[in-house]
Design a protein around this nucleic acid. Structure first.
Lengths: 182, 182
DNA sequence: TTGGAAAGTCAACAATGCTGACGTAAATTC
DNA sequence: GAATTTACGTCAGCATTGTTGACTTTCCAA
């Protein structure tokens, strides 16, 4: 099982530079390099905002962004296994283990040996873990909610479409299966 | 001068949990916690995809994501100053200096003492720096282009609207001033 | 019973953040 | 003209989070 699927965003298109004249009848001005660069910057700046609020809270908790990610996906799929989480987060088991270790030691995550398959560990949030996750999630959702509200439902739909198209195929499948549901 | 502006995504809204009944006449289903969580995951997975292709190239160059960011914004605003870049990137001068130092030493960036204000250093890409930036940018734009093409122009507009609404106000201004132009 | 998968752990290292302190040059202010 | 502030560079030290590589334990499945 691979953690780095095929990618597959290889083939470039027309309109590689300059102002694009409408080539075949469609208006493809949104594919100019200029527009794409603006999109890249939008992603960069928005992601900064996206993580800013939880990061501030995490600092007071003596945890980092990696802990937040683990908490989020355990909350999302209670009982998920370590190796499932590895696939979702795309890090090495050593890196994830370090994060899980501290969360378990601090009593925020419970690790339960699998009953069907004893090698697996199923992960759950404890009440204190749930409280932490909620605090972080509330902050992040507040920003998201404000952005959604400001942009409106139609924009939100487009937002989700573009983001989904930007994912690696393997992660897109995870994304679509996650309580969509499955 | 501050590097961390006001933020200001504090106030939470209605519909904080469960299924939302249309409250005032508008359909606000897109603001449910469930929808917001999906949006958060979409941001996470999409950002992974967004950085994946340049990251692979950077590995072969012995540089990291931080170098890419510097190259990008110097390309975007040739002659920009160090302190301007600090504001955009949101890191400390020590952190940025380490990255710029290696790019300058390797001949990819040229630093020129300001003529009007001798304290400032204006940054430019050398030909080799431009080539590097282009290679990274091409890869990132290819993914962006594919996503844009798959989602269509209306979705792209919504995508940009939501991202812009998600930024911190200070960065939103930078974003809008950047060759929009200014 | 054996091979391999899942997990945990130790050690070492790299990239990229951070703080604090200090120095220099140049602009600005008093 | 002197004092202060600003922009930049740099040294030292440290934290987080990512990486390899090696090794062990557990345990399912053939």
């Amino acid at each position: 099982m691979s953690q780095t699927p095929g990618s597959g965003a290889g083939q470039a298109g027309l309109l590689n530079s300059g102002a694009g004249g409408a080539g075949g009848g469609e208006n493809l001005l949104f594919l100019t390099d200029e527009q794409l660069r603006k999109g890249i910057e939008a992603m960069f700046f928005a992601y900064r905002g996206f993580t800013a609020d939880p990061d501030r809270i995490l600092e007071t908790m003596d945890y980092g962004r990696a802990h937040h990610r683990a908490l989020h996906f355990i909350q999302r799929s209670p009982g998920t296994t370590v190796s499932n989480l590895l696939g979702i987060l795309g890090v090495t088991k050593q890196s994830l283990n370090r994060v899980l270790r501290s969360l378990i030691d601090d009593g925020h995550v419970r690790s339960e040996k699998g009953r069907r398959d004893g090698r697996e560990r199923h992960l759950f949030l404890t009440p204190s873990g749930e409280a932490m996750e909620k605090q972080l999630s509330d902050a992040q959702r507040a920003r998201m909610r404000a952005a959604y509200r400001a942009a409106g439902p139609a924009a939100v739909q487009g937002f989700r479409q573009v983001l989904e198209a930007m994912m690696d195929p393997g992660l897109r499948d995870y994304y679509n299966r996650m309580r969509d549901g499955g």
